[in-house]
Design a protein around this nucleic acid. Structure first.
Lengths: 116, 116
DNA sequence: CAGTATCCAAAGGGATACTG
DNA sequence: CAGTATCCCTTTGGATACTG
């Protein structure tokens, strides 16, 4: 295993990792991304239904943060009452690799912890 | 972009991702892993010095959790006073890919957010 | 429908002091 | 050296009710 130079590159690497973690943190963030990703476009109440246990307050908060981080795009349709849909941005879609890695590692990890 | 089936695979995938995130969460976890990784073997007080801002309470907590998750190995040496060193397990070393991905994505993300 | 606002309990985490 | 223990403030997030 090779690790990058702790003294020299460490600060930068650390900041980069922390940036990623900050974006992904929050109890429901990845669930929200997955929901929007699968359906391509998804409305507020639909996502609320997709994710088991999430409250409207939390969904609202997570969506705002994802939008601030330019991972999703929010579109208001001029209907009565208003309809809003969310979709992933191009940048949001680049998360796919990370999400897949996290999935694969999580499965392996569970096996290590539970044992065989 | 292809996304896995939301209805069918979603629960499993979600759990796997959450498992990974749980392991990596905590303000200092990745910093601790990086420190131990770079130096191969590292003592408590050394790690404390490596990571800017961490308290002994938090370091103690993070180390315990990492050990519970079998990512690091704790060895007590019979000296006076006691010496303890920490090293990554084989399982801990498999995190390298994820850490690299998080680093790369974090750098790209920063560029997207700051803009050009 | 798509959120906000409010209240409140639990968890996270910093500072400091202490122990074998 | 390698941690524990304590205090205490901040953040997180659930439940519920309300709004344009």
């Amino acid at each position: 295993m090779t690790c990058k130079d702790f003294e020299k590159d460490h600060k930068k690497e650390m900041r980069a990792i922390q940036d990623s973690m900050d974006v992904l943190n929050g109890k429901w963030k990845i669930a929200v991304i997955s929901s929007i990703c699968y359906y391509n476009k998804r409305r507020f109440s639909d996502i609320l239904g997709d994710i088991d246990g999430i409250s409207n307050k939390m969904l609202s908060k997570e969506l705002k943060e994802l939008e601030l981080n330019k991972l999703i795009k929010r579109t208001v349709l001029d209907t009565q009452p208003v309809t809003v849909h969310y979709e992933l941005t191009a940048h949001g879609k680049t998360l796919q690799t990370i999400i897949n890695n996290l999935t694969d590692w999580g499965i392996k990890h569970r096996k290590v912890i539970i044992g065989k």
